[in-house]
Design a binder for these strands. Sequence first.
DNA 1: GCCCTTAATTGGA
DNA 2: GTGCTCCAATTAAGGGC
Length: 841
Amino acid sequence: MASHHQGGADLLSRIALNDNKAGMEGLDRDKINKIILETSKGSKFYENELKKEQQVNQRIEKMMEQKARITKEQLKQAQAEVDKLTCELERSRELGRVIVHVDMDAFYAAVEMRDCPELKDKPMAVGSMSMLSTSNYHARRFGVRAAMPGFIAKKLCPNLVIVPTNFDKYRAVSAQVREIFSEYDPHFMPMSLDEAYLDITEHLEQRKHWPETMRTYHICDAKTGNDADRSAAESERDELSPVLFEDSPSSSPSLSGADGKAEVFGTSAEEAVREMRFRIEQKTSLTASAGIAPNMMLAKVCSDKNKPNGQYRIPPERQVVMEFMKDLPVRKVSGVGKVTEKMLAALGIVNCDQLSQQMALLSLLFSGTSWHNFLHISLGLGSTCIERDSERKSMSTERTFGEMSDAEEQYSLCRDLCHDLAQDLQREGLKGKTVTLKLKNVKFEVKTRAFTLQYAVCTEEEIFAAAKDLLKVEIDSVSPQPLKLRLMGVRVSGFISAEDKKPLQRSIMGFLQKDGSDSGSFTQCAGSVLKAQEDSDGASFLKPQSTEMKVPSVSDLSNTNSGTDTTSYVNKPAVLKPSFKISTQVLQFLTCPVCNTEMKDVNLTAFNNHIDECLKGSAVDNEPTHLDAPKEQEELNSKPPASSSESRALKSSSHDPSCNEEKPSTSISVPLVETDEDGDFKTPFFSHRTKINGKRSVISKKKMPVCESSCKASLTTTHNLEAVTEMSSDSKGSSLTCPVCSQPQSTDDLALFNRHVDMCLNQEVLLEFRESHPPVGHSDEPALKSVRGQCKNKNNNQQQQQKRIINTLGSSPLPPSKKIKVLSTKHTIDKFFKSNAGQKV
DNA sequence: GCCCTTAATTGGA
DNA sequence: GTGCTCCAATTAAGGGC
């Protein structure tokens, strides 16, 4: 019944104008929707939206059926539960914090208008013909808003000026604004370039005692700003604000007075926030809106209330909070989107009062987490502690393009994406085990396909090895028809945590960095290795690396993934060995990477012997080796077209991040402190505050299964390699006998030989470990099998192998102790425009 | 059949 | 001519016991 209420328009709720935005009240919706509809109709996008809409309608139907089956008894019981929980929540209601949400008004558009006066009185938007990110208030009167494609906006407003994004500029302005934020709350939480939460409780406490002089701000503040910007901005400000925001109250009333040179702000929360907005306007010539409330949920709603260029406060009184919530449409609450809105509307719920009334029903129709969230909302509860985002859980890149049906082209694009993603991952020093491929066909249908590897990856080759297999399955599944794509994306997730990385890395890094210097020394080491090796015996074993290793072919990688040639990328003795060598020159004393004992004045042989002993004793506790190959996909491993792999190989050689002297330093030393490209998190230290209420449910992560954490005996046979390599060096080029398996190796390549020995050693250690540690489950079986297989398998590809070795070296992360937690922000629009800036679809 | 894990999808910002 | 990135929650499916 309710679902028919809106009649035909109901079918179009996804396409129709979303006027849930400041500056869009009282528009002629029907007229605007008609234009949007006419422009969209018949397109593939439209068809897909219709389909999705119908899916939602089906969900609603199901829900209504379920509702019809609910008995009075059930409802009564549900109500009891709701009441009980309500009581508990009420008891723990926290009103003591003063939370502020600040939001710049039409941010990107405002920046562009500030810098280009001709735009001031025109309807304009920032973005492109395919997508807009912001519009000014002028344009909003036409129904033009963010997240609307430019070509539709043009239909709504033919005179609309579309300005391309200037991301650097927004970032710079954002940095200026954040400087001000940090004065009110050093731990403020940026949500995007134009938005942040602050907890000003402490600030207000101090502010009470401040003399007036500390609360006085002058109107001409040329010192802090950019002088050039300033003069222009100053002269424009008086005109700018009225044009932008016709009837809005000014953040600084005395500003308009010609003689007002300074303004004194009070000590209340309102005054502090007004002061903050005043300073933002002085510094950037842009206005901001703010909400002040006892929690984040309310503050966010409040900042929208008097937008633009206004603020609103909910005082910390339960009664007032409840009063405020009563009439609030649920859609205004962050987290309630158009689907939830529609589902609730079907139950007759539009505002929060109704939400509250129907809570028992909701508890029977929605999941626990969902209705708990509804309950929090209806009670006006939210998080009272500003916490920076936690560690990121995934990283991805995706691209939209014109229809692409050629498989070769698709593989090539996939590789490009992997390349970009690898760079991003390495910039942050991340490695993940799950690779996900995302595809959107020309009908706008989205598919994701994931594959979890046995080891964490971060290089282009490793990611592509998995991604291309996923792609192949999809291509084959529609063959002989081609896949007609309009978007492809690659994501890496399942990052190995600091915990998991710890054991080995701490010891090795500790060993390499005994002098206490930071990661730079490791880089230096790596560089020195190359150099020293060339100097000492210009022949060898590193030399081929610098030339050939850069060009692994796709087929090599496909081997990698098929389980025929996969070994640990992580503990690469062949790499560590030379590093050790150099280290002894650089560092005065040595630390055993296994037991952490410091050893002074020992020669390498003695040191190696020590490690040998140590390793025998404590191999179990060390880092996983992931000897196991990724799941077999034999039949999937056919090669992508040669031409594509070749062309890409060339590209990859020219800027592979891991095979030159400079890049490793990027992945080691840059990542964790102040890298953020978006200008975020310049402040490396954040204090932790406990959440009191309104917190999100956190599902505690399970520890690694037994097989993961224990069966990867440390196959860090680094030390033994010393001997092996030396031997190899002596007999370079001739036929070699493996010191482990005693089999002659018909290769004249030292690196390859080293690799063989490496594997043999790994097998030895594993077998030894297995004998002394009866299996807990059978989970370590595959690993064992795989090692055995590897030892027999001799069709290794030396280029790839060497490449991996270097990759390993290049991407070794910092020891955990040196790490500053990486915290992520999600700049949704920001990221989009950054990556989209250079390309036209 | 339950518990756990992974994969895939969805909704939201 | 309708975007990019990330997260949390939900659902589906498969393996182990």
